[in-house]
């Protein structure tokens, strides 16, 4: 006996396809357990680090102070200024006398002894000359 001819319609094809693809998805193997771990390990390696913030949290106080004042160049400048300050403080009379005499600002020929130096003599001269 001959069966009636049956041509697959679009709707039947769509239904078959849908069923097949959904079943195929269900039959699909699950990813192995370590895939997630591998992906997360890569993520950790690639993730940008907030370096400035972390560095600021972890550095000691003296390092923070050192960075704050400008590092080695500033420290060298401060050291130099300190040494010069001590030097000036210890030998100020001689230095001031020598300095004034070199500019001929001493008003008295007898004022050669360090205890007779008038540190404001230059100021008087300034007033006189206007």
């Amino acid at each position: 006996m001959t069966q009636p001819n049956h041509t697959m319609s679009d709707a039947e094809l769509d239904e078959q396809l849908g069923q097949y693809l959904v079943q195929d998805q269900k039959d699909m193997p699950r990813p192995s357990d370590d895939l997630m771990a591998r992906i997360l390990a890569d993520a950790e390696a690639y993730q940008p680090r907030p370096t400035v913030f972390v560095a600021a949290l972890n550095r000691p106080w003296w390092k923070a102070l050192f960075d704050e004042i400008g590092g080695w160049p500033s420290l060298a400048g401060l050291g130099t200024a300190a040494v010069i300050g001590v030097w000036i403080g210890l030998g100020s009379s001689v230095i001031v006398t020598d300095g004034l005499s070199s500019f001929n600002l001493a008003t008295s020929a007898s004022a050669t002894a360090t205890d007779e130096v008038d540190p404001f003599s230059g100021l008087d001269l300034g007033f006189i000359e206007g």
Binding site: M28, P31, I39, E44, P48
Partner: peptide, 27 residues
């Protein structure tokens, strides 16, 4: 958020995207 250093962002994205990515690759 991941690019800004959030350590949880990678896990969230992986959980969301991995099943679909794997099934596309397997297909």
């Amino acid at each position: 958020a991941f690019a800004n250093g959030d350590p949880f962002a990678a896990r969230v994205l992986t959980k969301r995207l991995m099943p679909r990515v794997f099934s596309q690759a397997y297909r």
